[in-house]
Each structure stands twice: as structure tokens, then as C-alpha cells.
């Protein structure tokens, strides 16, 4: 005997589209014979039709299953769903291209090329571009060193100026402006320690012929015998010749210390370049 539940289930399955077969004659006869059953069937039909449930697009069972899987994962790990959970959509080729050529990968690629290029060029110093760059860098460093030395040399403190002389001798021997300042201080600095250090710094240069006349002029301007003798020794060491008239003037100068005059006399031949016959 068919029960009411089977009839209602058949009706719902038909309304859901799960079956194409509505109630058969036997079922229909039972429905018509039972007013309560008939009312219930009519109620179900009314509800189904008013909500238009038959017209709505329902997710497929497979999609439903994936949705609930995602939900359970999200609830358990609190992490966003990964790409393999998200239903795959068809990728457009433009998306791939735009992803490859976006700013960040381009910048990374450019940096990699720059590093490679720089390393390769540094290992091949014969490259003219690297030589020019290296030379300019050295010139800038030399200029900076000269500026530091000049700042120290203009300080009021003799200890600072002394430090400036030793700094210039170690780091900026070839700067023209710095050498001019050193020559000026050789004559005008009030500290003989600074002037002695300048003479020592000049002694380390290879060629003094360009400043030869200034050096000889500064001998007469000195008020310290040690500095005068250092300059005379410098002239001997660098083969800077002094003419006889200048030497005679120094020997006759009352302000020149006797020790200095003795030193000049002892080294007269070397200073004038006259050799014994």
C-alpha cells in the first residue's frame, strides 16, 4: 500500500526537476480520495510556484561541495583560500603578459642586469669608460682632501695647522692651491713648528723647480734659524742652486744667526754648484 509520504516525495522531486514523472493515476486517485493529502499537495505546489524556485539557478552539487570545503577550511585555519580551492577560471593571455611586465619584476630584472654589467666591467679595467670614471673619482677625492687640508691650515691653532700640514703631505701633494697656501704659510706663519713641517712636506715632493725662487725668497724672511737651515738643507737635497750674490747677502745680513751663516759656508759649494778645481 503506498503511503502518503511516498506521494509527497514524488511530488517534490517532480517540482525540483529531479524527475520528469508527476504523480501517476494511482497516486492521483489516492490524493483525490484523501482531502488532507490533497490539501498538502496543493500547498506544496503553491509554495513552489510562488517563490519561483523552479526558475532560480541553483549551484551544482559539485560547486556546493567545494563551497562548504572552503568554508570549513576558512573556519579552521583562518587563512584565505588558496588558488586551488578557488574555482579555476579561464586565464586570459593579457593577464599573464601584464603580470610579467609589471613594475616590480622589471625593476628586479634591471637591477640584476646593472649588477652583472658593473661586475663584468670592473673585472675588465681596460674598458675606457671604467678608466674615465675611476680617474674622475680619484680627482674628486683629491680635491676633497685638498679642501680638508686647507681648512685645517687656516685654523687659528698652531696644533691644528700642524695637523693640516701632515695631512696635506699624506693625502694631497699635487693640489696647486694647497701648495700655494703652504708656501704662503712658510713665510707668514707665526709658528716655527708649522714652518718646519712645511719644509719637511716639500722635501717629499719630487720636483721643486717650479717653486724654487719662492723657497729661496722665504729663507730671508725667516726669523727662526732652524727653519732657515732646513730650507738650506732642502736646497742642497733638491739641487736648487743659489747664486753667489744671494749667498753673500745672507752672510752679510746681521739678523741671520751665526749658526746659519756657518752652515751656509760649510755647504757653499753644493749651494752654488761650484766644484773644486
Amino acid at each position: 500500500m503506498m503511503n502518503f509520504e511516498e506521494i509527497i516525495t514524488q511530488k517534490i522531486q517532480y517540482l525540483n526537476g529531479e524527475t520528469s514523472q508527476d504523480l501517476d493515476d494511482k497516486m492521483q486517485a489516492i490524493v483525490e480520495a484523501n482531502p488532507e493529502l490533497q490539501a498538502e499537495i496543493e500547498f506544496i505546489e503553491t509554495i513552489w510556484q510562488s517563490q519561483s524556485l523552479a526558475d532560480d539557478h541553483q549551484p551544482s552539487p559539485a560547486l556546493d561541495a567545494r563551497f562548504y570545503q572552503m568554508l570549513s577550511l576558512a573556519q579552521s585555519s583562518q587563512s584565505p583560500p588558496t588558488n586551488d580551492m578557488i574555482p579555476e577560471t579561464k586565464k586570459h593571455w593579457l593577464d599573464t603578459v601584464s603580470r610579467l611586465f609589471s613594475l616590480k619584476p622589471l625593476a628586479q630584472f634591471a637591477l640584476l642586469v646593472l649588477v652583472f654589467f658593473t661586475g663584468w666591467n670592473l673585472n675588465t679595467p681596460s674598458q675606457p669608460l671604467v678608466q674615465v670614471t675611476s680617474q674622475k673619482l680619484e680627482e674628486q677625492i683629491a680635491t676633497l682632501n685638498a679642501m680638508v687640508a686647507m681648512t685645517m691650515l687656516r685654523d687659528q691653532s698652531a696644533t691644528e695647522r700642524l695637523a693640516g700640514v701632515t695631512y696635506s703631505a699624506a693625502n694631497a701633494q699635487n693640489d696647486t692651491g694647497l701648495n700655494d697656501l703652504l708656501l704662503e704659510l712658510l713665510i707668514n706663519d707665526n709658528s716655527s713648528a708649522v714652518r718646519l713641517a712645511i719644509v719637511d712636506a716639500l722635501a717629499k715632493r719630487n720636483n721643486l723647480h717650479d717653486i724654487q725662487s719662492k723657497l729661496m725668497f722665504s729663507i730671508k724672511k725667516q726669523n727662526n734659524p732652524l727653519v732657515q737651515m732646513s730650507l738650506i738643507r732642502l736646497a742642497i737635497q733638491k739641487q736648487i742652486l743659489i747664486d753667489e750674490n744671494t749667498l753673500s747677502a745672507l752672510l752679510n745680513d746681521q739678523s741671520i744667526d751665526t749658526d746659519v751663516k756657518d752652515y751656509i759656508r760649510e755647504n757653499r759649494r753644493q749651494l752654488t754648484g761650484r766644484h773644486s778645481v
Binding site: T159, E160, L162, A163, T166, S192, A193, L196, A197, N224, P225, L226, D257, D259
Partner: peptide, 10 residues
Amino acid sequence: SKPSSLNAHR
């Protein structure tokens, strides 16, 4: 910090 210099003639 900086160099020192001591000088005496005689």
C-alpha cells in the same frame, strides 16, 4: 688626536 712638535735651537 694631532701631531706634536718640539724645537730648540741650542
